[in-house]
Design a protein around this nucleic acid. Structure first.
Lengths: 146, 146
DNA sequence: TGAAATTAGTTGCATAACTAACTATATGCC
DNA sequence: GGCATATAGTTAGTTATGCAACTAATTTCA
């Protein structure tokens, strides 16, 4: 199990996503403790659908930074759990629109609360300017590489 | 495929490790282009062994922030590729010491160069103080959650 | 109009992650 | 000494990721 032997100055740890996986693990645990059976990856898809329902799979790829096979399988699993439904687009028969079910709509408030709580726990003692800096660095890194 | 539609101010994207996975993907690609068949996960294990050879699996868990089954399988795969060898510890028969082979030692310089190059590409236009801030925030988040 | 190229999505294969349950060895303590 | 507990590592099952190759529908353009 991970412990606290991380040493400051270890840039390669950034590659391994140390902090973000710690957040992800905690959020997953908080979902489980609340009796929710969704994974954080599934939740991240739902999150974008709550903001805008019935997106194409390609649009979900763009918004969640995943490739197409990943989205295909996440949607497969979400469909099995009856949280989303694939609807063929009327204007372009190549496209599946992914739409929320009522069951998924009911998860929105609770899970977003849990996510906010988790982020608050994670960010105790971190000041707002530094959070802004992290976001800007992430954006820059992402832009540099894509 | 991920594109550049990320919007600033989207904290949940941090959860998904957007930037660190972009770095990981790029490093993986750079390995492949150099004809190296190792994954970045395998490389992260080798990286710690280059700093200190013949660590126990538990110690590799601690240093790479992975759980025990993950390390078991990474070592399985590294052993298949003849890059490490499990050696039973003489003082404690529960322990496997994971030691580098000569083949692995030869990978050190090239792969660390590739990693440095990748980090440099990723960090173009990011100033040193901001990198320090990111590392400190990561450390704080990690400490908060563990 | 019709062939070539592009776009949306799926499938197969390999690697890796997490959880839970397991074996084997070592340690603590009465 | 011997039982309870802790530690090191493995195995099984599910989910997720990355890549390459694939099908089907749409667009481009000669």
């Amino acid at each position: 199990m991970p412990n606290n032997q991380f040493r400051r100055g270890e840039l390669y740890s950034v590659i391994n996503g140390m902090a973000s996986t710690a957040v992800a693990r905690r959020l997953q645990k908080n979902f489980r403790n609340a009796g929710l059976e969704i994974t954080i990856e599934q939740w991240s898809v739902l999150y974008h659908l709550w903001k805008e329902d019935c997106l194409s799979q390609q649009e979900l790829c763009n918004r969640t930074f995943r490739d197409k096979p990943s989205i295909t399988r996440l949607i497969d699993n979400l469909e099995k759990q009856k949280l989303v439904k694939r609807m063929p687009s009327k204007s372009d028969r190549r496209i599946n629109l992914v739409c929320l079910t009522d069951a998924a709509k009911e998860l929105q408030d609770l899970t977003i609360d849990l996510a906010n709580q988790t982020m608050n726990e994670a960010l105790i003692g971190v000041n707002k300017d530094d959070i802004e800096t992290v976001k800007q660095v992430f954006q820059k890194v992402y832009d540099n590489l894509t």
